[in-house]
Design a binder for these strands. Structure first.
Lengths: 218, 218
DNA sequence: TAAATTTGTTGTGATGGCTACAATATTACC
DNA sequence: GGTAATATTGTAGCCATCACAACAAATTTA
């Protein structure tokens, strides 16, 4: 029995947000080769000091973008030969959503020009990150219908219209107001505060909060 | 920028089958330390000759158990420090089901005493394989309701009663005959052959086949 | 102060899937 | 022809989904 071969292991994060009614993905512009100057998902190599893969992806995300303290859901591992020109790298992809106004990008020293990029205008990405992004978006569209992950996208208090808009942007299609409200209320994950929000020259909207701010599958 | 650290990468397979009306998991008895003599999921290290993680898990499964040519679905990656006493190992877990009568165990030279073990009687496993098994079983119970993965469990031709029994064993609960038949026919994945099967002193059952023998999500 | 404007909020009827439940059909055996 | 044993099939109630429209509440304006 010979020594087992060793490989580079990495994590990558597909972090989505909704900004001004459009779906954005958090990307970094690479400062070094390979793929220098191209956009890529934030991520990086597993270090010996990372006690888990989850810790690795959180650390890399923070270092490269300044985004911190979010729930990341593991998606899939990618390990084909040739996906990194430097040599074999097995990467584990994660999914998250976040309220972009909660974070300040590029506040760390080694951050690499993180940007929110319109998902619809994303061109070729470094490595196989286009594939990862496509699969992450697909998974996000399932997750949002099937878990409480959307709560990370919203502020602490929000109106049902704001919530519905997030769903519409992520799903890429309009939803019926009445059916959406019936559906979300059925899951019993929200409670109505006694406050309202004025957003123009019309009836104010009630503000809601999540009962439980933890990720939960329906 | 220093050289990225390298780690051992492995794959492990949770392969289930139904034998004599009980749910079995394919385990190997470890020949070497660590955990010598304990049961573990079949699997092993990613080699440079493996062109993908999928190729790795198939190779390891064949080498260690003789099971070949099955569909394996990736589940999750495990990379916590300390999950392997020899050093850090990141492992990618896979799920499969198989008709145990289709395979002959331990036909390869390096196979390690592979056995079908009752899931309900599995005690402590090596490494964190108990966790992986539990999560794989949970996923299997979702998969079977949501994909055509069950076809790998059945012979080429089977009766609806046989199929229902497989579902009952995996889900661990009885199902209603009429509802099961309505449900499975609704998915339009089976066709009735003109043959029947006598299994005793009573009306014979019609034999069915899958229309398409590929894995497909509903 | 009343009408217009704009968005928030809510109900109903049709449809389809899921669940619970029982009678009839078909074969071998006697 | 009667018995035993499993195969096969339908119906009614409930719940989720979907399409669809009227009323409520706030400001602006005439």
């Amino acid at each position: 029995m010979s020594e087992p071969p060793k490989h580079c292991v990495a994590t990558d994060a597909a972090v989505f947000s909704v900004v001004n009614g459009t779906l954005k993905i958090l990307l970094i512009k690479r400062k070094y080769d390979p793929f220098k100057g191209m956009f890529a998902l934030p991520g990086g190599f597993l270090e010996d000091t990372d006690k888990s893969l989850n810790e690795c992806v959180k650390r890399e995300l923070y270092e490269e973008t300044g985004v911190d303290n979010i729930f990341l859901k593991m998606l899939h591992a990618y390990g084909d030969v040739g996906r990194d020109p430097r040599g074999r790298v097995v990467t584990v992809a994660y999914l998250a959503v976040i309220n972009s106004s909660d974070v300040e990008l590029n506040k760390t020293k080694v951050s690499e020009n993180a940007e929110w990029v319109d998902v619809s205008s994303v061109k070729a990405l470094a490595f196989d990150h286009s594939t990862i992004l496509a699969e992450a978006l697909d998974e996000l569209r399932h997750e949002i219908m099937d878990s409480t992950i959307v709560f990370q996208l919203l502020k602490k208090r929000f109106t049902l219209t704001e919530m519905q808009k997030s769903y519409e942007v992520i799903l890429g299609k309009p939803l019926d107001k009445r059916n959406f409200r019936k559906w979300i209320k059925q899951h019993d994950i929200l409670f109505a505060t006694d406050q309202t929000k004025m957003e123009g020259v019309h009836r104010p909207a009630r503000l809601y909060e999540f009962k439980d701010k933890r990720y939960k599958r329906f």
